[in-house]
Design a protein around this nucleic acid. Structure first.
Length: 749
DNA sequence: TAGTTTTAAGTTTTT
DNA sequence: CTTAAAACTA
């Protein structure tokens, strides 16, 4: 080999092997930060440039839209022709396939995608007398069944829910869903597999289109996705999957780690390449992550080597409550950005286990004017007014859409009550399940059960839907007649969407709410309409718009170029990296969630591993003694992960909770319960006077209200050590050491 | 029956 | 503290 192309020169031997590999299927076992995205993107470029592979014949599948976009960007940066390759999530690929081949399964191309709430609506319409929570559970189980590729007839369905009733409901649900002409998330994977299996023609077309298939984050594939992968690949297809069993965090969604463990057997003796050099994090950070995940039993087991040197020790901060947590994070970030040249807001990420935790940080960051962005909060699309508007738009595309129709037919009130609604829907059978036609029939029949007022209301509704559709069809036909002259209305779909929202009365309905409650619903509707601007004002453009929203609920980030701190759930950080990471809320019950055991606890550990390995240079962990839950402060125990972590690699600040027993401080014995006897307590005090940042007599302290002071005594109380402080103003204060006052801090020596 | 007020219940994680 | 269900009023 005389010359190696420049873009391959920086790869290590294993990475290069992975890029050059051809022939048999390939499994790349790639640890965190080992450059797997780089391998995949480089491989795409290499195949196009050096091997003459047609970009259109390459399919790369990821699990999140963010990852798909980033991969596309990075591949195109090496080889611009890579823009022709298809980079999608599994679900978005499924939707793409169904829009073209749906007729094999009786689906027309204008379907919309139902979310979990829509599933619940359908279930509510087919079963009586169940509470919403029960319906939610059933919806979840049906989604789970589809993840496992179970049909209502599958014997294995009892694995999800043992009752015969569930089987019946699942079957009824499928029937009701079919009548709407729409699909749920699970169908986006399941239906393509069924079509490909039953229609050799469709399979052959797909096989001849895609010669190279790559899958990122393969450890998160569920059974249905595995089946889809098998159906996409013919014996001639080159298949390459990348994954890391330690980063499997979607078990709750049916992800099966065995997919990756058994890949070589399932795909005819595949080759395996391991990437075990970590180029992202410093050694101390990796040690912390590894020392926790090592407690898992079910793993392949690997040791990443840190290529970036030792670095600084991660910091573990024990704080009093979530308000103090938000303040300390803000202060830490602010201070770092102000004093260090190398630190910018965009280097920082604040990680949390649940979306709800973002609120406290948002408020504090707003107050202190720290610029931030939130990744992946889907609250916007859960708002009532947004769902209403989307339901209207969905009904324009597909008039069989029962869920959307139910939602908006009587909003604003048009006199169409439950009775009239059911009367109309009962006409569907005679109208080929088209609700618009059913409305006409029930009107023409002058049937009983529908008042004059209701009939007029239905007409008004249908008319406004039709006006919107006419606009879309008009634009479409103009476009078809003058294909050379691209008609591009200034606002694209926005105009039509805004028209419908106004015309249907939904805008007025919510405007009234705004005036009464001082909300901003109309502004939200406006934002939704703005987002439609990028789409064509045609039926197809509208379907695209709705699909984007269903599959990628990430709100468009305003790209103003201002560096911002990232607020993000741990799940959402997969595939990302940051110079400085704060993992927050490391408390038992929150992270790990509840008192999880066994496989569930192992998944939470992997989640910790994913979060910690996002950090390149600095890692901070926070744990609060109290957290507000249901509006009131609840005492919290620190996360078990903090005790599993290698304490010798941590800088601990603040007061550890009573009985905190990190791995490095343990003499032997795997797990010691918190000391309960007097003897244990005195041992705890002894540690408190050690040098690791705990309280000891003589420590100088500062309190925002009382000023400077000094610790004069540490006594044993019923609930642990009690600290006594004398302030310079003569005031004395006593508090539990584990319940350190939020207005109280130790002064560094 | 539609809309509001009172009371009870309950925080995963995502396509 | 927010949301869903129940109870209540016009």
């Amino acid at each position: 080999m005389n010359e190696i192309p420049y873009y391959l020169q920086d790869l290590n031997p294993e990475q290069r092997d992975a890029v050059f590999h051809e022939g048999k299927p390939l499994l790349i076992l790639a640890g965190a930060g080992s450059g797997k995205t780089r391998v995949v993107t480089t491989k795409i470029a290499y195949l196009i440039r050096e091997k003459g592979v047609n970009p259109r014949s390459i399919l790369a599948v990821t699990f999140t839209n963010k990852a798909a976009r980033e991969m596309a960007e990075r591949a195109a940066a090496i080889e611009s022709a890579a823009a022709g390759a298809m980079l999608r999530t599994f679900h978005s690929f499924g939707a793409w396939f169904l829009r073209r081949n749906g007729e094999y399964a009786g689906l027309s191309s204008n379907f919309v995608i139902y979310d979990d709430d829509d599933m619940v609506t359908i279930l509510g319409s087919i079963i009586e007398g169940k509470k919403k929570n029960e319906l939610k559970l059933i919806a979840k189980q049906i989604a789970r069944a589809k993840d496992y590729f179970f049909t209502p007839e599958s014997a294995e369905l009892s694995f999800i829910n043992h009752s015969g009733e569930f089987r019946k409901i699942y079957a009824q649900y499928e029937e009701a869903l079919r009548k709407t002409g729409n699909v749920d998330f699970g169908d986006l994977i399941k239906k393509p597999v069924e079509i490909l299996r039953e229609n050799p023609g469709a399979a052959e077309r797909l096989h001849s289109r895609f010669r190279v298939v790559m899958v990122d984050e393969y450890q998160d594939a569920n059974v249905a996705q595995f089946e889809l992968l098998k159906a996409i690949c013919s014996p001639e297809t080159y298949l390459c999957v990348v994954g890391d069993d330690d980063q499997s965090i979607y078990r709750f969604r049916g992800a099966e780690v065995k997919n990756i463990l058994e890949f070589p057997q399932r795909f005819g003796g595949a080759d395996v390449i391991r990437l075990e050099k970590n180029y992202r994090s410093t050694a101390h950070i990796l040690d912390i992550a590894d020392s926790v995940v090592r407690h898992n039993a079910g793993r392949l087991g690997k040791k990443l080597s840190a290529e970036r040197g030792t670095g600084t020790k991660p910091m573990l901060a024990f704080l009093s409550d979530q308000d103090s947590e938000a303040r300390e994070c803000a202060a830490l970030i602010d201070n770092s950005v102000r004093t260090k040249k190398t630190s910018a807001y965009s280097d920082w990420a604040v990680l949390y286990r649940t979306n709800a935790q973002s609120l406290g940080f948002e408020n504090e960051f707003l107050r202190r004017k720290i610029p931030y962005r939130i990744v992946g909060s889907l609250k916007f699309y859960e708002r009532e007014e947004i769902k209403d508007a989307l339901a209207l738009l969905s009904f324009v595309v597909n008039t069989k859409d029962e869920v959307s129709f139910r939602r908006v037919i009587n909003k604003p009130a048009r006199g169409v009550g439950a009775a009239a609604l059911e009367r109309i829907l009962s006409e569907r059978a005679a109208a080929d399940w088209d609700i618009e036609a059913a409305c006409e029939r029930s009107g023409a029949l002058s049937a009983t059960g529908i008042s004059v007022k209701a009939r007029a209301g239905v007409n008004t509704f249908i008319e406004s839907i039709n006006r919107a559709r006419k606009i879309l069809l008009a634009v479409e036909s103009v476009k078809r007649d003058n294909s050379h002259c691209i008609l591009k209305a200034a606002q694209g779909l926005s105009c039509c969407a805004a028209g419908l929202i106004e015309d249907s009365g939904i805008a007025k309905y919510h405007r009234a709410r705004d005036e009464i409650n001082g909300e901003t619903r109309v502004a939200n509707l406006q934002e939704l309409v703005n987002n439609a601007a990028l789409y064509e004002a045609t039926p197809e453009g509208l379907a695209d718009f709705l699909e984007r929203i269903a599959l990628d609920r990430a709100i468009e980030q305003q790209e103003d170029g201002e560096p911002r701190v990232t607020l993000i759930t741990v799940h959402n950080t997969k595939g990302l990296e940051f110079h400085r990471v704060i993992m927050t809320g490391l408390e038992q019950g929150l992270f790990p969630r509840d008192d999880k055991e066994g496989d569930d606890l192992e998944e939470e550990r992997r989640l910790f591993y994913v979060g910690a390995t996002r950090a390149m240079d600095e890692l901070y962990l926070t744990s609060c003694a109290y957290r507000r839950m249901f509006g009131q402060a609840t005492p919290m125990r620190s996360s078990i992960f903090l005790e599993e972590a290698d304490g010798s690699k941590l800088r601990i600040v603040g007061t550890p909770p009573y009985g905190f027993n990190p791995a490095a401080l343990r003499h032997s014995a795997p797990k010691q319960a918190a000391p309960k006897e007097t003897e244990g307590q005195s041992a705890a005090i002894k540690r408190k006077t050690s040098s690791d940042g705990r309280w000891q007599i003589g420590d100088r302290v500062f309190n925002e209200d009382y000023g400077y002071g000094e610790i004069t005594a540490i006594n044993e109380g019923n609930e642990g050590p009690v600290i006594t402080v004398c302030y310079e103003n003569g005031r004395r204060q006593r508090f539990l050491s584990r319940a350190q006052s939020s207005r109280f801090m130790k002064i560094k020596d």
